[in-house]
Design a protein around this nucleic acid. Sequence first.
RNA 1: GGUCCAGUGGUGGAACUGGUAUACACGAGAGACUUAAAAUCUCUUGAGGGCAACCUCAUGUGGGUUCGACUCCCACCUGGACCACCA
Length: 875
Amino acid sequence: MAKYNHKEIEPKWRKNWDESGIYKTGEGKDKPKYYILDMFPYPSGAGLHVGHPKGYIATDVYGRMRMMQGYNVLHPMGWDAFGLPAENFALANKVHPRIATEKNIATFKKQLAQLGFTYDWEREINTTDPEFYKWTQWIFLEMFKRGLAYESREPINWCPSCKTGLANEDLENGRCERCGSVVEKKPMRQWVLKITAYAERMLDDLEKLPDWEESIKEMQKNWIGKSEGASIKFPVILSAAERNEESREETGSFADAQDDVSIKVFTTRPDTLFGATYMVLAPEHELIKNYELRIKNYGEVKKYAEDAKKKSEIDRADVQKEKTGVELKGVKAINPVNNEEIPVFVADYVLAGYGTGAIMAVPGHDERDFEFAKKYGLAIREVVKAEKKNDGECFSGEGVSVNSGFLDGLTTPEAKKKMIFWLEEKGIGKKSVSYKIKDWVFSRQRYWGEPFPLAYCEHCKNAVDDFIATSKIDLGKIRSFASSADAGSAQDDRERGGFTLGELLNPGWIGVDELPVTLPEVEHYEPTGTGESPLANIVEWVNTKCPKCGGAAKRETNTMPQWAGSSWYYLRFEDPKNDQALVNKEKEKYWSPVDFYVGGAEHATRHLIYARFWHKFLYDIGAVSYDEPFTRLQHVGLILAEDGRKMSKRWNNVINPDEIVEKYGADAMRVYEMFMGPFSQPVAWNTNGLIGARKFLERVWKLKSKVQKSESQKSRSQKLDNLLHKTIKKVGEDIESFKFNTAISQMMILVNEMTAADGLSKEQYQALLKILAPFAPHLCEELWTEVRSEKELESIFNEEWPKYDPELIKDEIIELVIQVNGKVRDMISVDAEVSEEEAKKIALESENVKKWTKGKRAEKIVYVKGKLVSIVVKD
RNA sequence: GGUCCAGUGGUGGAACUGGUAUACACGAGAGACUUAAAAUCUCUUGAGGGCAACCUCAUGUGGGUUCGACUCCCACCUGGACCACCA
């Protein structure tokens, strides 16, 4: 018999599959559909290491099983090729990003191809293809028109090394997720997407996703970070000394102004309002620059605020460091619940980006305020009585209100409710919700990304202003209107006199409807570092005609972030060549949503948040007909290097799949990666383990000759059938629940039994091949053609997935376990149908059991059908 | 600091809904084949005691519930992931 030679078998079958087109996606409506998807990779220059394909192998195994179960399976692959990694690689290697990307894609494709995946390459997509990003731009434009994209000049995260602004999601502990540089805060003109408008729905709809892993949902919940509480207004006045001075000098005007001045705060603990003894503003707070004349120590305050703003996020967010701040001399705030005058500080422990950028400080019941108050000698008042309280510590839990007027005696939840009611009645506060998630900073100052389909027109800017002036539309109202997700229907647009909501919010910016707006060729695509994208240098591209008035206009020169294309790419696989619409509604009804999505957990708060946001928006505008994109979600556990560290060039511990395939074969690698451990858990690579997988396949190979010998004898053991059918059952169920490691160990048990058995029938062997085929497709296809008969199909993947016979998996004889006082004392083989009476009788008659029951009385006998008898004895 | 997850042999790990703990694989040891090695095959392999039947102990630690706990409850220890001055 020929030896198992993967080098011969594997290329042969891959060629055969390519030519026969067996993996072309079928669309016959007579079959049910199954859409299984991997998170598509960005093709970096380093190529694949053995860890990358783990998820792809899993989806391939699952998809192949579904094929054999009679489904049309859509299992596509594409490339997330825009973005910083591709561009940085191109810069380092002095080639155009497009060329580098093409080359990298070719490498990736070659590497993936040799693993024998079922990808239908006719559906390949690439986010950098103008025919693809045309629709990325289209989605942006739809958001822009509805006021969900807006221009902002807020300070944002700036990576000094990548020379671009970054979204909150792109940071890791205050560092750039890509290059590890400490991120600075820099005020810059940015396009921002109003993801916060969808925060509530994204949170609520997690309930609709029972087949998502709990851990991923939890991460999203934390990222969205909903807090419920109240917003409260604290009036601001001049301090007593200043008031006297004012009236002496008769400057007179502050009396009018003070009515309007107030500090708005958000708190989750309105029940502690009586304990608010000072206030703190974030260094970025508007009041500071607006009240220069009123703040007596303005120089000092300004210096503190400026210094704080300059600090990197990482320094500012250091929890360990001592809190600092400066009092705003000359002004006071009034605690509205007791009319006390309280001091106002600026301090960098208050964040501009959360809540209102100002807090009421309750040092009695907030650790941070407590620390600050001790340092600056501020009043600390107990307003919540703790059940247990440690001296000298601050109690931030729930209890009963004290020293709190009308709240006294109420528990914290009651007090919160009552305070909110009181605030609303007086009109100085209201129930309020705050989210941690921030709007999505959507522009990058780099070359290799989708251009924005926007032009800036001075004329239309004035026209918009005129329009607002004549129609008396309050821009503030429009802004709050835009926060609701359903803002901006086509009808609204008409009523606004031809201006879209986006244009009203971003005067002068006009959407370019002629798509795609293609990325121009440039001489120098290095980032400028000035906050301008390299595109700004291409005069002939920048200068354009205003799509609205036809006059001179300038294009937006920032580009979109890498996350743009990946936020909707899964829709494109349904109909990748459609140039009329983002999705073909007919096809969409068949394929979508994605039934099963597999990828890394690191995307829980990035890609998966963005994709859900875009999808919900597309649902709202009627572009898709369902509101969650991914029905089932499973995360892949990393494959670590043999030394237990992440595989990385830096540690020189990377294992290249090409070498493994060459030496042991793709099938051995596939089986090993699925066998290593629980799918979602990180496991270290171990080449010895791989050899074990290879040996297993060799045993399967050798069984072939046993079948041929057995054929005439017609020997078919009952025992083997029993195990075979149990294995069919377990493998099917385990693949279904992504427990590949136990599926494989069960097949190993079966193969060991088959090897040891007296005879092996062809049917038994064929059933084994069918359930192993998704894991080791080349080997099983080869063996299948050798043992199949004329009437059987040419490819094993056209065969039906075997069904187990419930009769055959029943055990006739079982091992009855007998326990005495909880300890196993005997095991007796009995008929599976044994009655309770009889089982108990057999148990009590056992010699081993008698040793333990002798001279004692049986107090209780527990019987578990088909399993055990538990005897409880007492002296 | 918050949220979540995990802790089982020398190693990766298995154990359904509370019912034989350590399946399967790796590694190690012994043997067969071989001039020899590799490959392959067979046996042993949680710890301790015993010639053996068998007994005792063992799923991070300590308690609890139960006839019975890796599994459920409480407290603690250790490790990991994500978030983090989020008011």
